[in-house]
């Protein structure tokens, strides 16, 4: 029984230690600014096409589905409102983070995993560099910056997708659609819409790094680490999202 628990407990301990070191390194020299920029380019710019595509179609499909429900109450004009609230609060942050997790947690895990099995991580330590400082902290910092930005873009593109449906299929005027979209949002929506991707960024980057750095057993191990990273990151995002939503919803209900 205890042996069965040993693995997960040690893995959790490793993850917490890694998180602690990665955050502590933000305030310690040397800083690898070049690596942060490079990762921002890979994670942010690289993920932009899929974020744009999924954002657009998510908004469009939501407008389509919601308009049917709203039509029952004669409230089709409120489509923009529903689209913007659901996108900004939930779907924007969660879908963007899941996509970036699928693309980058796996990428990070396989890159670091390959470095681990070819002893490049050991070589780095032997050559006077802390691999957490050089590899983990830049990925974490870069993701924490770009994920909220990607979410903003995704939210906006989603609203635009909703607008296309609203304008061409539901025959709403641009004024109707955009004003209801705009007015629906409160500061708390925007706050949670940006806090969530910021929190998820730590999961996306650190889970990828964690599985990458624990890779053993050659190329097969790299594949295993990659799969595990995506699964663990996606599930963790959804679980954390539930708790964050709970905090925000009770906060609003309480206030």
């Amino acid at each position: 029984m205890l042996d069965f628990l040993k693995g997960p407990v040690l893995a959790t301990q490793d993850f917490v230690t890694l998180t602690g070191s990665a955050i502590r390194n933000l305030f310690r020299r040397p800083h690898y600014a070049d690596d942060i920029y490079r990762q921002m380019d890979i994670i942010g710019w690289g993920s932009l096409p899929i974020v744009l595509l999924t954002g657009f179609f998510t908004g469009a499909v939501m407008a389509l589905q919601m308009s049917r429900a709203l039509a029952q109450y004669g409230q089709v004009a409120k489509t923009g409102q529903v689209v913007s609230i659901v996108l900004v609060r939930e779907l924007g942050p969660v879908l963007t983070s899941l996509l970036v997790a699928g693309r980058n947690s796996s990428g990070i895990a396989s890159e670091l995993g390959s470095m681990k099995v070819t002893e490049q991580i050991d070589a780095m330590r032997a050559l006077g560099t802390d691999p957490i400082q050089k590899l983990v902290t830049p990925r974490m910092a870069a993701t924490a910056v770009v994920l909220p930005l990607l979410t903003i873009i995704s939210d906006f593109v989603g609203m635009f997708g909703g607008f296309i449906i609203g304008y061409f299929l539901l025959h709403l005027t641009p004024g109707q659609y955009w004003s209801s979209t705009w007015r629906a949002l409160e500061y708390s929506d925007v706050t949670q819409g940006l806090l969530k991707p910021f929190a998820f960024a730590f999961i996306v980057s650190l889970v990828g790094c964690h599985y990458g750095l624990r890779t053993t057993g050659g190329t097969q191990g790299v594949g295993h680490a990659t799969t595990q990273a995506v699964v663990a990151a996606s599930v963790s995002i959804l679980i954390l999202d539930f708790f964050l939503a709970k905090i925000f919803v009770s906060g609003v209900a309480g206030g």
Partner: peptide, 10 residues
């Protein structure tokens, strides 16, 4: 140190 598979940063 020379590592087994060279461990050059690729």
């Amino acid at each position: 140190m020379l590592f087994q598979e060279s461990a050059l940063f690729d």
